[in-house]
Design a protein around this nucleic acid. Structure first.
Lengths: 192, 192
DNA sequence: ACCTGAACACCGTTCAAGT
DNA sequence: ACCTGAACACCGTTCAAGT
């Protein structure tokens, strides 16, 4: 078996989509690649470097899609982010647990901050606003994947009864748009 | 040594504040309590039940503080949430990884949604808005604790140079307020 | 009722040794 | 250069056995 960083990362993503982050161990990954666990350490310093690589790979996919978008605004960026994050199960947890300033991720962060500026955010609040946008998308996808995993993890019935017709859970796309607009309009309202 | 659920939870919180979530194992926790790891399983079904208990304990603290606040609005709720979450290192990760519908947590969620309603959010978007508020505070505290842990994890210098004077990182309280206002004003702007 | 010894099936990681 | 066997120091969890 001929290994390299990309094959390992792609195999890891396959495992993530099958069984989630908990089931992705160096040993299970090695087994999926028909190789021994120790072999992986020739290509990655440790498990964390592998996770960092996966986050960076996903960021690369996003960057690739972004170059095709002209006059990209924050609204479009958020939608592309969500779409690509959804392609990898537990990707939000991976992004949250790895060092964020790898090349492609840094590009995304800088683009995000530039787009915040376009929305009228002042320089003193660029990093807060950027983190907020980042966290909004990551958390939203995390929630989507969480509720998609087991239907039993739903809200208890007495809870749902309290507030009538929360159809937002059934309309994840519309709900994401709503949340995104809350954020964008909030930025603009606070900016002026 | 006389054990009960609360003593175990409090010892766990002490360990969290000393070394973070990674260093909190059933074995290290048992050692801190001068007991064997197997003993903990008499009081908690498993590690996850212990974590759920810690999240519930923190939620209880928040509920206690909330009863003393009259005419609590979402702004105040968010501030109290942040304060209590900050008292326990890695509490956001614990909240994100445990079942959210335990008694005190459910109270908080329902209060949050009621306060969203007061802000003019329509019924169809109550759960999205509630999740957003929840995620905003959790992510903010997570970021605060992340950057407080190691100063080396700061942004690379070429990055900071790009955008001048992001004093928000130095003013975490003001930055939190800014983000919170973005959210609240966004809800109101989207509501009408 | 409450705790423990000992075991099981896992982890991540290292490193001398193989090709 | 690339992979492996074997080991080290850990995990969470179970359960018969002790008091």
């Amino acid at each position: 078996m001929k290994l390299d960083q990309q094959t390992i990362q792609l195999a890891a993503i396959t495992l993530l989509n099958e069984n989630g982050l908990e089931a992705l161990s160096m040993r299970s990954l090695a087994k999926a690649l028909d190789v021994k666990a120790a072999s992986l350490y020739f290509h990655f310093k440790n498990r964390n470097a592998l996770m960092e690589g996966i986050a960076e790979l996903i960021s690369g996919r996003i960057c690739q899609r972004l170059v095709k978008v002209k006059d990209c605004d924050f609204y479009q960026l958020a939608h592309i982010l969500r779409e690509e994050l959804k392609r990898v199960n537990d990707s939000p947890k991976i992004f949250e647990s790895t060092y964020p300033f790898t090349p492609n991720r840094t590009k995304l962060i800088m683009l995000g901050m530039k787009l915040m500026q376009d929305l009228g955010v002042d320089k003193q609040h660029l990093t807060v606003a950027g983190n907020m946008g980042n966290n909004f998308v990551l958390s939203y996808v995390a929630d989507e994947q969480y509720f998609a995993r087991d239907t039993e993890r739903q809200m208890p019935s007495e809870f749902a009864a309290q507030f009538t017709s929360p159809i937002d859970l059934a309309n994840p796309d519309e709900a994401f748009d709503y949340g995104l607009n809350v954020f964008i309009h909030g930025l603009q309202a606070t900016a002026k």
